[in-house]
Design a protein around this nucleic acid. Structure first.
Length: 576
RNA sequence: CGGGGCGUAGCGCAGCUUGGCAGCGCGCCUGCCUUGGGCGCAGGAGGUCGCCGGUUCGAAUCCGGCCGCCCCGACCA
């Protein structure tokens, strides 16, 4: 391909509004253009990168035994109603209507469609197990898209679904997918971690995320340096062995007027008490019954952990009416003392706390020197708070640290969450009809492009790993007017292509600086410069972000292949 | 959804406070010059100032409404 006819409009400047480095570089390099908030055109360069990522994913999915298919983007809304996800997804589900006013949505994921499909095609245990996948566009009406392809409303994703007879089969299918994901990440070359996480909008257990490290990443994770345990804060396990009962004497219970002081910040400021001396009371409904969850004022409640502790299928925040009913006070003053109707679940950490401040279950009232066992019955204890940096690791006791990352892959065991409501069943050898056991496995292909650009870059532009690079190499003439250079460049270009490389020939009549800047910006791994040494038959061979050498034109192909033997330039360090 | 900011030439921006010829840089076109890191000189094209309405002799500028985009925050009692 010749640059003169290749559609890759690079930009010298992009709006100051665009903050994330990968976003800026992908726009500047002509990989993508925005059409609307969170919606992007992939230009030839960007599409080549995504295509390369897709090919790696496709090969590894096939190698793991999965079969590719292609499902519709338009889904009848009734199908989503059957699984209750029109409710749980709410406005994130993109909805449209057809000419007959029939309600459809644009697929944000495909559990419903594929489960219904499989339900209609599987009769017997003899037909199981199998795993299906597709590489498709997904639509999610995100509250706030950001970072270009990091969080878009329309994005590319590979989604796979496994169908098994039983849990043991699911474990095998799941392990095969996890293994495939490791191979995909290794082939792409992006450093990554695997973190325990929660089911979010999909639902399930043994959920893990494949995460690319990035300070610009929008998701926080905790990690144990001691045993390399990684998790999202919502599920990260904290050791409780350090909790010791306080031997502070219990002080007499005190009522304090706190007019209009509802939030933790307000109450700490008003009473002059640090947040860790407060206990906040959060009212939830778990499968319909009311629960009061207690955590220390400076902690975050983990709905995932609370849900697990209660063994609940559904957990939602209490609505204001419920809160007022059980607490007898407007929202903002709930507390455990004298609360009605609600089961009290307290974070284990509170075992070690005495004389804390809670809401008073009366308007404008808080209580000081509250103690469990005396002022309210000993609650049910469970770990229901988010892990934070500094918390001891549950596995080895070392303090957890925090980092940010970009979630690229997410694997779940679903069980019968979708096969039950959609009646995807098979007849087992004992003659019994049983629900198919499912797993699902997502991988964000367009997001990977952004994550790679975020990690592999320098001040001049992107430094693509060979595995996903839009081209293998670019041949640049210093002076396009110089016939010797032009001829030699054409020869090297032809030889590189004959060697099976995907090559750009920079044949524009631009000044050298412009060509170099553009070549660095788009980040093609191999650069061959045909310049003043062309008369001697010599060219310069460079690795973007790496080493360079001057060789005889005859040796250019071999020299380039040697410089590009590694997927990523040796000694590469990410910025910052 | 709450808060903040922005919308002016293909791109990046100034002008708006104090109403009076629509500007700058880059890019683009033509010519000359130049050719190892976003050259130089000369000439030129290119605008419904986001949209609708109002005030005014006169609106990019003031007022109202709408649309779009960006950033921050969001069940924490």
């Amino acid at each position: 391909m010749r640059t003169g006819e290749f559609f890759a409009p690079t930009l010298r400047q992009v709006s100051g509004d665009v903050e994330m480095a990968s976003h800026r570089l992908l726009l500047r390099g002509g990989f993508m253009r925005q059409l609307a908030a969170g919606i992007y055109c992939l230009l030839p360069l960007g599409w080549r990168v995504v295509h390369n990522i897709e090919e790696i994913v496709r090969e590894e999915m096939d190698a793991a035994g999965a079969q590719e298919l292609f499902l519709p983007t338009l889904h009848p809304v009734e199908l989503w109603e059957k699984t209750g996800r029109t409710e749980s997804w709410g406005p994130e589900l993109m909805r449209i209507r057809d000419r007959n006013d029939r309600a459809f949505c644009l697929g944000g994921t495909h559990e419903e469609v594929i489960t219904q499909l499989v339900a209609s095609g599987v009769r017997s245990y003899r037909e199981l197990p199998f795993t299906l996948y597709q590489i498709q566009v997904k639509f999610r009406d995100e509250i706030r898209p950001r970072g270009g392809m990091v969080r878009a409303r329309e994005f590319g994703m590979k989604d796979a679904y496994s169908f098994d007879r039983d849990l043991a089969g699911l474990d095998r299918s799941y392990d095969a997918m996890v293994e495939g994901y490791h191979r995909i990440m290794q082939r792409i070359g992006l450093p990554y971690h695997v973190a325990d996480s929660s089911g979010e909008g999909i639902g399930g257990w043994d959920t893990r995320e494949f995460v690319s490290l990035s300070e610009a990443g929008e998701t926080a994770y905790v990690r144990c340096e001691g045993c390399d345990y990684h998790a999202t804060p919502e599920v990260g396990e904290i050791s409780t062995s350090e909790i010791v009962p306080s031997d502070d004497p219990m002080q007499p219970l005190e009522r304090v007027e706190t007019p209009d002081q509802r939030t933790i910040e307000q109450v700490t400021a008003f009473l002059g008490v640090p947040a860790q001396r407060l206990v906040k009371t959060l009212i939830y409904k778990a499968d319909g019954r009311v629960v009061a969850a207690l955590v220390r004022g400076d902690r975050d409640l983990s709905e995932d952990k609370l849900k697990a502790a209660l063994g609940a299928d559904e957990l939602v925040m209490g609505d204001p009416a419920t809160i007022e009913r059980v607490s007898g006070a407007p929202v903002g003053f709930a507390g455990p003392v004298g609360i009605k109707e609600a089961e009290i679940v307290a974070d284990e950490e509170l075992r070690g706390e005495r004389n804390f401040v809670t809401g008073g279950n009366e308007a404008d009232l808080h209580l000081r020197n509250v103690n469990w066992g005396r002022d309210f019955p000993e609650p049910r204890w469970a770990q229901i708070r988010n892990a934070e940096p500094g918390d001891p690791c549950a596995k080895c006791g070392k303090p957890l640290t925090e980092y940010h990352g970009i979630e690229l892959g997410h694997v779940f065991k679903l069980g019968t969450k979708y096969s039950d409501p959609l009646e995807a069943r098979y007849l087992d050898e004992d003659g019994e009809r049983k629900p198919i056991i499912m797993g699902c496995y997502g991988f964000g292909t367009t997001r990977v492009m952004a994550a790679v650009a975020e990690y592999f870059r320098d001040d001049a532009g992107i430094i693509w790993p060979r595995s996903v690079a839009p081209f293998d190499a670019i041949v640049i003439t210093i002076s396009q007017d110089d016939e010797v250079q032009r001829t030699l460049a054409e020869r090297v270009y032809a030889e590189l292509r004959a060697a099976g490389l995907d090559v750009l020939l920079e044949d524009r009549d631009e000044r050298p600086g412009v060509k170099f800047k553009d070549a660095d910006l788009i980040g093609v791994p191999g650069q061959i410069v045909v310049g003043r040494l062309a008369g001697e038959g010599k060219v310069e061979v460079r690795r973007r972000g790496g080493e360079s050498t001057t060789v005889d034109a005859d040796e250019a192909v071999a020299a380039l292949q040697k410089l590009m033997a590694d997927n990523v330039p040796a000694g590469f360090r990410p910025p910052e």
